[in-house]
Design a protein around this nucleic acid. Structure first.
Length: 133
DNA sequence: GCCAACGTTGGC
DNA sequence: GCCAACGTTGGC
């Protein structure tokens, strides 16, 4: 099982929307590197939902709920269905992640514009620890 | 509001 | 195929 981080602007679509909907099709990714990550997802993988811009914090855990599907014209891009698993006991801010040595290599930190990025097992554990889980 | 990072577009 | 110009994202 792999682990991921999905970035979203909460005013566009956030954790609360995901919970309300019971799941959603995560589409509209229009970045080649991010699309590679989407295509690498398999059902059962887990993903942190991170709110960018105003909040800058990871807020919940979602599960990849289906196989990746073509997205966009000609299926050039990829989308995947996700479902909410649980909110983090407390949000983990970007500042907290940056202040944690174990997370210095986190893909999202190294490349802030990447909207879909991998999270290693060790990084995942460190983030859940910060979340009080 | 500004700026850095990065991607894309279009002229040559 | 190169590169300048421009657009977008997202942190600060």
């Amino acid at each position: 099982m792999s682990r991921w981080l999905l970035k979203s602007e909460p005013s566009a679509y956030g954790w609360a929307d995901l919970v309300r909907d019971g799941g959603t099709r995560w589409d509209g990714v229009r970045n080649a590197q991010a699309a590679i990550h989407v295509r690498a997802m398999t059902p059962g993988d887990e993903a942190l939902i991170y709110h960018s811009m105003s909040e800058k914090a990871a807020v919940g855990i979602a599960r990849i709920a289906g196989p990746t599907e073509p997205d966009g014209e000609g299926g050039k891009w990829a989308a995947v269905r996700i479902e909410p698993v649980a909110p983090l006991p407390r949000p983990v801010t970007l500042a907290a992640m940056k202040a944690t040595p174990a997370l210095s290599g986190l893909a999202m930190i190294r490349q802030s514009r990447l909207s879909v990025s991998p999270v290693t097992d060790a990084e995942w554990a460190a983030i859940l620890d910060l979340a009080g889980a």
